[in-house]
Design a protein around this nucleic acid. Structure first.
Lengths: 145, 145
DNA sequence: TTGCTTGCAAAGGATTTGCAACATG
DNA sequence: CATGTTGCAAATCCTTTGCAAGCAA
């Protein structure tokens, strides 16, 4: 059996939550999936306006929240006051390595670190549900300058 | 030779940066050091008003920034839109384990994880300067409920 | 005296919300 | 058709900034 598509997941989520399918929801899901990097609500809004100039930003904010609830997106917070969203479904978990010089961001992953985090939480009796790891540094380019 | 006190560090920082010592700066430093948990600007402001009802919140925001610059405080961001500040000087680095049920926060530390993070960054040619790790889970109490 | 600091209030920027018109199931 | 949804604008929240008066060096 093939894996569910994002569209199927989203529709299933909507109907289970007694929410409705609308043109905006379908359109913004597609547009969101086309982004290959994390996007802010404003970036997605600007992108969306190119196709549908009547869309409202509140709609973009609201639908991004739905995507998070549906398990299709996750919020990433680089601490600059802007919430960004990235695809979650079908991609492996990763953390972020951020250059303090040029803001270039790389997705990284280390299964050993993940495992150690889980154990660390358990040492305190916690059941770990989630984590966020941000590594800040200087990329090769900015190191040299 | 005894280690420098926070007050000394702050005064040194101020004079090196051509800034002035003021009653508010001394008072807020003392008050900040008395907190045993991270505080938000607003919490510190409320606390400060008990002693000095004329202090302004802008002053609190400004002085917290100074403490960060002086290396005496660090910002922690739990993702709820409120920036919190905690003591940095003289205390070992730590990360945060946050209960999603009751918001109880524990400071944790694992030197092995820290080392692996540094190596992970180096694999990508980055020089790691800093990191943030937040572990979200359920504390023993909330696990049971 | 010079110019950094303060407190106040207003401005700022990201996100949320109230509401009337609209569209879905 | 009952209710969820949208777009707009206004409102919110935390934080920053402009400014005139106040103070440190």
């Amino acid at each position: 059996m093939a894996e569910k598509t994002e569209k199927e997941i989203f529709e299933e989520y909507l109907s289970r939550a007694n929410l409705r399918g609308t043109a905006q929801r379908g359109f913004l899901l597609d547009l969101f999936l086309k982004q290959d990097k994390h996007v802010s609500a404003e970036q997605l809004y600007d992108e969306a306006k190119k196709t549908d100039s009547t869309i409202g930003q509140a709609t973009v904010y609201r639908i991004l929240k739905l995507l998070v609830d549906a398990g299709l997106a996750r919020e990433v917070d680089f601490g600059d006051g802007i919430m960004r969203y990235e695809r979650l479904h079908g991609l492996q978990h990763h953390d972020h390595l951020i250059c303090k010089g040029c803001s270039e961001t790389i997705e990284v992953c280390d299964p050993i670190i993940e495992e150690l985090q889980k154990r660390l939480a358990e040492q305190y009796g916690y059941k770990m549900l989630d984590h966020e790891l941000y590594l800040y540094g200087l990329c090769p380019k900015c190191r040299g300058e």
